[in-house]
């Protein structure tokens, strides 16, 4: 694990940003050229949404991975978080611009359809986290920054629910995402009187 951590230390953060952003234009290009199948609007919407969920889960896994497995990805956590917000935003944009199209319909949908209400709520919670993911905000907000960024927990549960509710019939994949999110959140609860438990209250 130490060796792996050493290798990770040598990877610059900008490389994670670049690699993480590449799928965005690539998927759009595939959608334009038929690479996403017969119905590219729905496909692109799903691809961006699933990527956002995967990144969200990866971001939530950073601190348990360090605590329980000794794998240190802390250096990349901000990049993972910012990428999460980017893909959630792209997912939302495809829905607004390419899918629903009618602006009047959008408000009606957000208010009327629970899965959209929940998805929007998740995005609204994530947006300030993305906007304050910079050193200046961390300095200016101080202790409030930590409290603010705990919004990622409710946002993650809402995002997982959003995917579960949108599925037709009983489907496993969305439930697996929600399960992963729940496990990662539960792993943060303090485990009292366990001989090997470290203080988990100071991890975020």
């Amino acid at each position: 694990m130490d060796k792996l951590n050493q290798i990770l230390r040598r990877i610059p953060v900008w490389a994670v940003y670049v690699l993480g952003l590449l799928p965005a234009p690539w998927l759009f290009y595939l959608g334009l050229t038929g690479g996403l199948g017969i119905e590219p609007i729905e496909a692109l919407e799903h691809e961006y949404g699933e990527l956002a969920l995967k990144l969200l889960i990866l971001g939530l896994a950073v601190s348990p991975l360090r605590r329980l497995a000794g794998l240190n990805l802390m250096k990349f956590r901000r990049a993972i978080g910012v990428l999460t917000v980017c893909y959630a935003g792209l997912h939302l944009l495809v829905w607004l611009v390419l899918d629903v199209q009618a602006p009047a319909q959008i408000w009606a949908d957000i208010l009327k359809r629970p899965y959209i209400t929940i998805g929007m709520a998740a995005f609204v919670l994530l947006l300030p986290l993305g906007l304050t993911s910079n050193n200046a905000s961390v300095r200016r907000l101080g202790a409030a920054w930590r409290r603010l960024h705990r919004l990622v927990y409710p946002a993650a549960v809402l995002a997982g629910l959003h995917y579960v509710i949108v599925a037709k019939g009983f489907q496993f994949e969305p439930l697996l995402y929600l399960l992963a999110i729940c496990i990662l959140l539960l792993s943060r609860l303090p485990v009292p009187r366990h001989p090997f438990a470290r203080r988990s209250s100071d991890s975020t």
Binding site: I38, E39, I41, A102, Q105
Partner: peptide, 13 residues
């Protein structure tokens, strides 16, 4: 979702 409109398959992105 609304059933007021539909997307014709084959129209692209």
């Amino acid at each position: 979702w609304s059933q007021a409109s539909e997307r014709m398959i084959g129209g692209g992105l």
